[in-house]
């Protein structure tokens, strides 16, 4: 399975990527929504995108809306991974089309649990 990790922080991209690689994902990353759309337009459409909210150029919510407007990308599961943690923000992201929401700070187990809920654990991992 493939995952696209979108975050403006290189350290955070590393943390999320290494969790996903550990679970058996092939991972690419992007520093903001615009870079992520470039990857999709190249034809590299992942099973999963993890998406930060606050980023320069194109933020996570704009990215989610852009993905939603293209039927070719419908199979992609979108999981927000962000420090935005108010109730209303989560509702907004889900309404825009995000499937799941992980609030920073999170642990590796939290990512694994959410992927299990989404049926996106590439290999059988004992919970």
């Amino acid at each position: 399975m493939r995952a696209l990790v979108i975050d403006d922080s290189r350290a955070m991209r590393r943390i999320v990527s290494s969790i996903l690689i550990g679970l058996g994902y092939e991972v690419r990353d992007a520093g903001h929504g615009g870079e992520a759309l470039d990857v999709l337009n190249e034809g590299w459409v992942p099973d999963l995108a993890t998406i930060d909210w606050n980023m320069p150029v194109m933020d996570g919510l704009q990215f989610v809306s852009a993905v939603r407007s293209n039927p070719a990308w419908r199979s992609m599961t979108m999981m927000m991974v962000t420090s935005e943690s108010e109730h209303t923000q989560i509702v907004r992201a889900l309404a825009a089309g995000a499937h799941e929401y992980v609030i920073k700070p999170f642990t590796a187990d939290a990512i694994r649990d959410k992927l299990a809920l989404l049926g996106l654990l590439p290999q059988e991992v004992v919970l």
Binding site: H87, I90, E100, V102, F106, D109, A110, D113, K114, L117
Partner: peptide, 20 residues
């Protein structure tokens, strides 16, 4: 805590059944 609600609770259920 924030770490606890991140553990395996689907986001739609979090917003439906919890408040800050």
């Amino acid at each position: 805590s924030q770490l606890e609600v991140n553990r395996g609770l689907p986001a739609p259920m979090l917003v439906r059944h919890f408040s800050r």
